[in-house]
Design a binder for these strands. Structure first.
Length: 811
RNA sequence: GCCCGGGUGGCGAAACCGGUAAACGCGACGGACUUAAAAUCCGUUGCCCUCAAGGGCUUGUGGGUUCGAGUCCCACCCCGGGCACCA
């Protein structure tokens, strides 16, 4: 049990921070700004230890940077639209709004209990009309710029959540949220044209040098730039043709067949009226029925011959055209030239269906594999023979271009962002379909388009809003005639793609935000969140920021200057989560150890980027540390004496200065665990000092202890503030300056000189830091132990790096 | 298959530029205080041989570079993550 009344102290200081508006900020050009944000949470009202880890990091930074003299903006808001609230509401029979708005105060209280401080005057919630009005406004801006469009296409459908999903929300063929097998449906949906920004999104990754490499790599992979060629293939005996995309134009002479994706629009025409028509159509139908997951898990490639041939432009010879589901409609042109000699997939297909295989790259002599995808000279390739792969690619592309068959192109894996959802609890899309004018946007002055209350929120394949005639039937803003409202709502990732702009000016009812305020705060100096958003939120947010930049509203092209993705908290071998049933609720720990011990343990548990395993014992350790600090502060660990300063006293102070240096550097490089360790060491030093024979000199102890408290302020704020006040430091530690170390005090004048023989430590000496090389070597050679290892002969070689090491190589 | 991380005591980990491997914490063991326990305080704690003095070994495995390697290079094994019938 702690030596102090945790509950009273926590309550007291949480009230003080609130009342004194300690962390409420405005733009202040005289101070450097620090904009510090944690990815805004869904207000579940159920924080567990895993969540607290992030909140602790962000709060530590807020408090630390404030003490370092920064004007720190650390706001908080709620990702309050979306399926969790809607599903919970359906289950409990309440309105999603009621459900959500009941949880927000619970969540705020949980954050308060941790001692996390925010500028609450800037709180926002995406489900409030004041917020989603600007979602809708943003949508209309994208529409005007041609970046929002509606199109019918095969889309990902989650049968459980009863809505479509963006590509980013499908993981291995399963719904990212609920793990259902994703089906495909042909539906008209709304998209944002993120592909138009593919190149900028890729190129600007190189500016993000304070992002984790792995997140940048994940985005790079997701955007998926590839270089190749696109060219036209004539279908023999018809006037039909189709485009293919390849990254290996150099292998064109080896094309022995062509493949169309089952969804390819040409398939129907190719076989119409032929005797394979029904066979091909059956295959296509089968393929469409299968989910991507099923298609991918089939070991064997399947396909069917269309009876048609295409002309290989390189050889002028006809090659059979197949339909096969290993070719995807969504990538490239949905049609390929198949080169079994150089592509394993094509090899597999060719051997199964008895198609010719021609090698066009010479494999090494000892080659025993099937398709050869490596480097080598071109063979069987006419004018390309003898060229290496890169030369042959270039030559083929210029040949294609000069002959008018096609051209070199860049292809992207990234698809447009599907943003419409067939659910209730999201921002309604502000569009109508007029009987006469077609798609017409709602005028901005009529925003927001509000949710009507509906009887039944349960999803039924289309938005519940579609069941409300008063909502659906409206007049066309353009012609006044009859029109129907769009009933789909927006993906909640639209809400979260710009909320950090809104924090800068959260109550603006005239515009989405004041660009001047945004200019002061943006970009975020620190953004903290889970790596699970690497290609979801973080990609969408970068895209929307670039759109806002192009509109002249954002001062930056990249919103997040520094990104930190924390590791997970693991218990019983799994990520702590409600669905796994392994959550550790903080309540018991708050009561027993207090918020500060929890915070310290969250910091101390391991490197912030790594996954960590929750341990009850760990909290006991940090709690004990806090107790020791407390007892030293209130005079229970030893008495102070007034006496002249000795060398030993100075050494204690030096240790304190070294700790300041270590802790400051550790926090700056996000090494919170070692920062805590350094403070534990200082606390141990002070404890020994109090218990030393000479006793602790009052002035020295108080100075060193004061440094310790100030450093503890951002980490264990309640206890540190209370002790700061008790020991006469002042009434508000949070607004004190972070201590600075004196470079003179940090210097050591005596260090350990290690003497090695053949690289093995044989002796050690305490020496002056400025010891000369000669003196160090002399000392080393004078050691009896060293001599016993050297034998009679003088060392063959002497390496001296004074004052740290002398290594003697025996002769 | 390709691309990123990572592998160090009984456990969580530290070692920032190639220079004493294991800081700090947990656990364990011993001691002080106590009638006793808890709490607290003091000490020991990588492994092996040894009464000891002392010695040997040790950062996934095997090689290499270097006076010196947890750290750099090569090959491999294992774990985690990303991408992947992407032409």
């Amino acid at each position: 049990m702690p030596a102090f009344d945790i509950a009273a102290i926590e309550q007291k200081w949480q009230d003080q921070w609130d009342k004194q508006k300690t962390f409420v900020v405005t733009e202040d050009p005289t101070r450097p700004k620090f904009y510090n944000v944690q990815m805004y949470p869904y207000p579940s009202g159920e924080l567990h230890m895993g969540h607290l880890r992030n909140y602790t990091y962000v709060d530590l930074l807020t408090r630390y940077k404030r003490m370092r003299g920064y004007n720190v903006l650390s706001p908080m808001g709620w990702d309050s639209f979306g399926l969790p609230a809607e599903n919970a509401a359906i289950k409990t029979g309440t309105h999603p709004r009621e459900f959500t708005e009941a949880k927000i105060p619970v969540m705020k209280d949980q954050l308060r209990r941790l001692g996390a401080v925010y500028d609450w005057t800037r709180e926002l919630a995406s489900h409030s009309p004041e917020y989603y009005r600007w979602d809708q406004w943003l949508f209309l801006q994208l529409w005007e710029r041609g970046l929002a469009y509606k199109k019918k296409a095969a889309v990902n459908w989650c049968p459980k959540d009863q809505t479509v999903l963006a590509n980013e929300q499908v993981v291995d063929g399963l719904c990212e949220r609920c793990d259902s097998v994703v089906e495909r449906r042909e539906l008209a949906q709304w998209y944002f044209k993120i592909t138009e920004y593919a190149e900028r999104l890729l190129d600007d990754l190189s500016q993000l040098d304070e992002w984790p490499d792995r997140v940048r790599t994940m985005q790079e992979n997701w955007i998926g730039r590839s270089e190749g060629a696109r060219f036209d293939m004539q279908v023999a005996d018809t006037d039909l043709s189709f485009d293919v995309y390849t990254t290996r134009p150099d292998t064109m002479f080896g094309m022995t067949f062509a493949v169309l994706a089952p969804e390819h629009p040409l398939v129907e025409q190719l076989v119409a009226g032929t005797d394979v028509e029904s066979e091909v159509n059956d295959y296509v139908k089968q393929a469409l029925l299968h989910s991507d997951l099923e298609r991918m898990s089939e070991a064997d490639k399947t396909g069917v011959f269309t009876g048609r041939h295409a002309i290989n432009p390189a050889t002028g010879k006809p090659v059979p055209i197949y339909v096969a589901d290993y070719v995807l409609m969504g990538y490239g042109t949905g049609a390929i030239m198949a080169v079994p000699g150089q592509d394993q997939r094509d090899w597999d297909f060719a051997t199964k269906y008895g198609i010719d295989i021609v090698r066009t790259v010479q494999p090494p002599e000892d080659w025993e594999g099937e398709a050869f995808t490596g480097e080598g000279p071109a063979i069987n390739s006419g004018f390309l023979d003898g060229l290496d792969v890169d030369e042959a690619k270039a030559k083929t592309i210029s040949w294609l271009e000069s002959e008018g068959y096609g051209e070199g192109t860049v292809n992207w894996r990234l698809r447009d962002w599907l943003i419409s959802r067939q659910r209730y609890w999201g921002s309604p899309i502000p569009m109508v379909t007029c009987d006469d004018c077609g798609l017409v946007p709602i005028p901005v002055e009529d925003l927001p388009v509000l949710h009507p209350d509906v009887e039944d929120y349960a999803p039924q394949g289309e938005s519940p809003l579609a069941a409300v005639p008063e909502f659906v039937n409206t007049t066309c803003p353009k012609c006044g005639g009859h029109a129907k409202r769009e009933t789909d709502t927006m993906d909640t990732f639209v809400d979260s793609s710009w909320y950090y702009f809104r924090y800068c000016d959260p109550h603006n009812s005239e515009q989405i935000f004041d660009p001047e305020k945004v200019k002061y705060w943006m970009p975020l100096d620190q953004y903290v969140g889970g790596v699970e958003h690497a290609v979801l939120h973080l990609l969408y947010a970068r895209f929307i920021t670039k759109v806002l930049f192009d509109m002249g509203l954002s001062p930056v092209q990249e919103p997040f200057a520094r990104l930190f993705t924390q590791g997970m908290l693991v218990k019983d071998g799994a990520k702590m989560s409600k669905s796994k049933g392994n959550v550790v609720s903080p309540d018991h720990y708050y009561d027993r150890y207090g918020a500060d011990a929890i915070r310290l343990y969250e910091l101390f548990i391991g490197p912030p980027t790594d996954d960590a395993i929750w341990s009850d014992r760990g909290v006991e350790g940090t709690s004990r540390f806090l107790d020791r600090v407390w007892r030293m502060g209130v005079g229970e660990s030893g008495d102070l004496v007034d006496r002249p300063e000795t060398d030993d006293d100075v050494e204690v102070l030096r240790e304190a200065h070294r700790t300041i240096e270590r802790v400051t550097n550790d926090i700056d490089r996000f090494s919170f665990n070692t920062a805590v360790a350094a403070m534990m060491e200082l606390s141990n030093t002070l404890m020994s000092y109090l218990r030393s024979d000479a006793g602790a000199r009052r002035e020295t102890f108080e100075e060193a202890y004061g440094y310790l408290l100030r450093m503890l302020g951002p980490m264990a704020p309640h206890v540190a503030h209370e002790l700061w006040e008790i020991t006469g430091g002042g009434s508000m530690l949070a607004t004190e300056a972070w201590p600075e170390w004196d470079p003179e005090m940090v210097k050591r004048d005596v260090v350990t000189l290690v003497v090695q023989v053949n690289g093995k430590v044989r002796d050690k000496f305490e020496v002056a830091v400025d010891i000369s090389e000669e003196a160090a070597v002399e000392l080393a050679l004078g050691s009896e132990r060293v001599q016993s290892f050297l034998g009679d002969a003088p060392p063959r070689k002497v390496i001296a790096k004074p004052p740290n090491i002398v290594n003697l190589v025996a002769g």
